[in-house]
Deep mutational scan, measured.
Amino acid sequence: LQAFIKTLTGKTFTVEMEPSDTIENLKAKIQDKEGIPPDQQRLIFAGKQLEDGRTLSDYNIQKESTLHLVL
């Protein structure tokens, strides 16, 4: 599935991932794409901060969901 990552500066980019991917995997993909170390990334979806060990499906993240990236 493709999801949108929106930063506080208003920049939006897309990442490809599977519902079974962990938040940790997602942070690694963001690092590959944007060069931001995972330990500096905080991802917010539906008002909740996402925990590394959980999966996208745990948070009911669907295709074309928008996640907010806070540094």
Rank of each mutant, 00 (worst) to 15 (best):
K33L: 15
A28Y: 12
P38K: 15
L1F: 15
M17E: 00
T66Q: 07
Q40F: 09
S65C: 05
L43Y: 04
D21M: 11
E24H: 11
L1P: 03
S65V: 15
K27G: 00
P19V: 09
N60K: 08
E64A: 10
T9H: 12
P38N: 06
D32L: 13
G10A: 03
G35A: 04
S20E: 11
K48D: 06
N60E: 07
K29S: 04
E18F: 14
T12D: 05
F4G: 03
D21A: 09
P38M: 15
I5C: 05
P37D: 07
T66A: 07
Q31P: 00
Q62N: 14
F45A: 03
Q49D: 13
E34C: 14
L8H: 14
I36Y: 14
T9Q: 13
E34M: 15
L71A: 07
D58I: 01
E16F: 13
Q31N: 09
K29C: 04
L50R: 00
I30N: 00
K11H: 14
E64W: 12
T9W: 15
H68I: 15
K48C: 08
D52Q: 05
E16D: 11
T12W: 11
Q62I: 12
E16L: 11
K27C: 01
Q49A: 10
I44Y: 15
I5P: 01
E24A: 15
D58S: 12
G10Q: 03
E51I: 08
P37V: 05
P37A: 09
F13A: 01
E16H: 09
S65F: 13
L69E: 01
A3W: 09
F45T: 03
T55G: 03
P19M: 13
V15N: 00
D21E: 08
M17L: 14
D39M: 10
A3S: 03
E18Q: 13
K29W: 06
N25M: 15
K48F: 09
T14E: 06
F13E: 01
L8I: 14
K27Q: 02
L69R: 00
E51F: 05
I61D: 04
L56S: 02
K6Y: 07
G47W: 03
K63D: 15
A46L: 12
M17F: 15
L50Q: 01
A3C: 15
G35S: 04
